[in-house]
């Protein structure tokens, strides 16, 4: 088990024991490092942002601050579904420059469930992904009671720059229409 100091490597995120926010997406539960969660807000109006990858739903006004919102379903390759009234936005703090305010990004999930403690004995390395989608998006797995939930490598997931818009995105609509 990795019990060393929590030095975050820039290439591979690795899960550490601690408290996690668990939430549901499709039929599965996932965990998100609670230290990265700024707040959880109800679904609000999202303004679409042209030219961004398709998993970026748009931008929202978080009390005067404009932050992007990512649709986690699309990002993780889970079939899309309409938002119901349990759907909400988890506002996540991202790795930013030291000293400056952390960058915030909203993440749409189906519903949040609870906060769980995952200690060193219940945490394990991420399984190697079978397919290309979502490679490196899981930083580890945690055992919660009888189930095992994947813990998200959230910085990797939210790093929009390295992902080219996949087919059907707004970017394609330009050529489609022209």
């Amino acid at each position: 088990m990795h019990s060393g100091p929590a030095s975050r490597s820039h290439r591979v995120e690795r899960a550490y024991p601690g408290r996690y926010l668990s939430f549901h997406l499709g039929c599965g539960a996932y965990g998100l490092d609670i230290l990265r969660v700024r707040e959880i807000i109800a679904m609000i109006d999202i303004t679409p942002l042209p030219g961004t990858p398709d998993f970026v739903r748009g931008i929202i006004n978080l009390r005067g601050r404009i932050i992007p919102v990512v649709e986690l379903r699309r990002r993780l390759g889970i079939a899309a579904a309409a938002d119901d009234d349990q759907a909400c936005i988890i506002v996540v703090e991202r790795e930013g420059r030291e000293g400056s305010d952390p960058r915030l990004t909203g993440v749409i999930v189906d519903r949040v469930s609870e906060i769980v403690d995952i200690d060193a004995d219940s945490i394990g390395p991420a399984p190697r992904p079978a397919r290309g989608t979502g490679a490196g998006f899981i930083s580890g797995v945690g055992r919660v009671q009888d189930t095992v939930i994947p813990l998200l490598a959230i910085d990797r997931i939210l790093h929009a720059g390295e992902v080219a818009p996949s087919g059907g995105g707004a970017g394609d609509a330009v050529t489609e229409a022209a």
């Binding site: 942002l49 042209p50 030219g51 961004t52 970026v56 931008i59 601050r65 929009a160 720059g161």
Partner: peptide, 15 residues
Amino acid sequence: KSLDPSMPVPRSIAG
């Protein structure tokens, strides 16, 4: 208001 600098927005959008 500036948008998140990590989002690759088109040049036509100033904020």
